[in-house]
């Protein structure tokens, strides 16, 4: 579902007043067909950011090579390493514990058939990123896993993304529902995938 936004007159002025950054704004083929709206885009990204830095998403996008764990995002117990492909190393592969489908019960490892971190050559770090930094990282094919805007939009329905809302008993879900997240995500991209300016 695409939503077209009425472009307000004087948008440039408003953008200037609100100090949005247009610099380094990645423009890809996919968003040519959309009406750009920096205000709506930046607003939508507020919700996107809340989700991405929530423990359910950020814990597997750590700044180091060890995933995080828990609502307090502590270093994962037993310090599993990212490994080249993001799937762990020798005796400590993600899939050794994280199964295709979850076991019932509290504190069981959350499950997904393709559980992994971003690979070593494309770490896609969320941890410690400001909204501006993260937005730029997300739209840049060099840092987003080579995704076009269209692929990026579709990524909202990626299994590993969606599992963030279904991690089993005792784990706090991201602050908004997946439907709300998806809406904000698409709106952010459709309106131009603007990166908020960091203070």
């Amino acid at each position: 579902m695409k939503k077209y936004i009425i472009v307000l007159a004087g948008i440039v002025t408003i953008v200037a007043l609100l100090s949005f950054s247009l610099k380094d704004q990645p423009i890809s083929d996919a968003n040519d067909s959309f009406h750009k709206d920096s205000i709506a885009s930046v607003n939508a990204f507020k919700d996107v950011y809340k989700v991405l830095i929530s423990p359910r998403c950020m814990n597997c996008h750590p700044s180091g090579d060890v995933p995080l764990q828990g609502d307090d995002s502590h270093l994962h117990t037993m310090l599993p390493q990212r490994g080249k492909d993001g799937k762990g190393i020798n005796s400590m592969k993600c899939g050794n514990c994280h199964q295709a489908t979850p076991m019932e019960g509290l504190n069981q490892p959350p499950a997904h058939p393709d559980w992994h971190l971003p690979p070593a050559d494309m770490k896609m770090v969320f941890e410690g990123k400001t909204p501006g930094q993260l937005a730029k990282q997300l739209v840049n094919p060099k840092t987003n896993g080579g995704k076009t805007m269209k692929q990026l939009m579709e990524h909202a329905d990626d299994g590993l993304v969606k599992i963030g809302w279904d991690m089993g008993e005792g784990r706090t879900a991201p602050p908004i529902s997946h439907a709300e997240f998806k809406k904000a995500w698409i709106r952010w991209i459709e309106t131009g995938a603007y990166a908020p300016k960091d203070k």
């Binding site: 592969k93 899939g95 050794n96 514990c97 199964q99």
Partner: peptide
């Protein structure tokens, strides 16, 4: 820990169906 196709899988959380 057991080996499942050579990986050091934790059998306590591995459904037998796997």
């Amino acid at each position: 820990t057991v080996h499942l196709n050579g990986e050091a899988v934790r059998s306590c959380v591995t459904k037998v169906s796997r």
